[in-house]
Design a protein around this nucleic acid. Structure first.
Lengths: 205, 205
DNA sequence: ATAGTTCCGGAGGGAGCCTCCGCTTATGCC
DNA sequence: GGCATAAGCGGAGGCTCCCTCCGGAACTAT
């Protein structure tokens, strides 16, 4: 149904971020920094120490600041990277059985939300309404998830009377319940996802 | 209708905060600190520099830390102080005409919300569910506002088919619209509050 | 007035932010 | 391969902030 070419979405999103460096060594450092920042932000929230990030990336603090002139740029780059990874994973997962693929992707989505939550607050403070970014992100997300859902529905693994918007809202809502342990979230999610399963119509109650 | 004695609410709330010091000089400093902190947090958000706050209060940094061992304690104390002031103002305002009193109080409420927003995020990180505080706050708020609304309704200044919950939600919702200039908020609020006015029933259209 | 608390203030050590600039290294051209 | 040069590196240094600690000042009760 979707007319968007899923495979192109990640690049579209990536273009929203800061330009990646050209030289091989610079690119290496750039990527080490994003990886280190992702971990650090996930662990300590958006206020993680930039010097600590540089240290983890085994890179000088100067290098960090050259690639990302301020915390915001780095935050944004990490966010975009995460989102791209989430979108890209949809393609990989399509090798699994339909139901498993969808569920796996939704779990991946939950992990992504955790990162996003840490970043979003701070991100909004500065970005305040760079709608283009978030719109693109949303589009990419849907383009990535839609095929998975459709396949699952065609295989009668997922009930027909639902859609991706609804599912994402549900999963998002559960993931965002405040003050819950990860295991609790996972359990609730498990229950809720089970509700998505297709059940053959039954004659009598 | 309310069986709560409004005038006692502020004390009840205050008791939730850290104990105020006894000695005259200590109390003076305590209050200077809260005032300075209120300004600083309003200006720079919850991450305002504590040293700057001590400086503004013309007090040594050590004094700040003795009264408020950590940022949270100070944040909480400011929040409680603000809330108490809001509640107390209801009593003063009752000298105004009913409509004016209610509107003035609601504007005061908006100002309070601005502070609260700055504090709430950070506050929740640590407090995470000290429900007692927030419950008390809510009770105090309602006890303070209810008489004002009632008086206004009895004077036929405010329509009868509404209540404080609704009004507070409305005002709060408007105050929280993201990315608006204060003047814009004020204008929207003006319009919305006008909708509260009592209008005599009209026979023909 | 004096003793005994209570409170004050800021020095100091540690950490983070960010800038600046001399040195290193990759790349493209011969 | 060798070289020029542009691109990139990294960390010292100057600043601010956080928080602790303790000698001395100020208040209060007697």
């Amino acid at each position: 149904m979707s007319t968007i070419d899923t495979t192109d979405i990640p690049e579209t999103i990536r273009e929203l971020g800061p330009a990646r460096p050209q030289r091989a060594d610079a690119l290496r450092n750039y990527e080490k920094l994003i990886a280190a920042a992702r971990d650090a932000f996930a662990q300590d929230g958006a206020s993680a120490s930039l010097e600590e990030i540089a240290r983890r990336a085994e890179v000088g603090i100067g290098t960090l600041y050259r690639h990302f002139p301020n915390r915001q740029t780095l935050l944004e780059a990490v966010y975009i990277d995460e989102l791209q990874a989430l979108c890209a994973s949809a393609a990989t997962l399509s090798e699994l059985p339909p139901w498993d693929a969808l569920v796996a992707w939704l779990y991946r989505f939950v992990a992504y939300l955790a990162t996003k939550r840490a970043l979003a607050q701070e991100l909004l403070n500065y970005l305040d309404g760079d709608a283009a970014l978030f719109q693109s992100c949303r589009a990419g997300l849907y383009a990535a998830g839609e095929p998975l859902l459709q396949r699952a529905q065609e295989a009668e693994a997922v009930r027909a009377d639902t859609n991706l918007t609804e599912i994402i809202q549900m999963v998002g809502g559960i993931a965002k319940i405040p003050g819950l342990e990860p295991e609790q979230v996972e359990h609730i999610l498990e229950v809720a996802l089970d509700g998505l399963r297709y059940r053959a119509p039954v004659g009598q109650p």
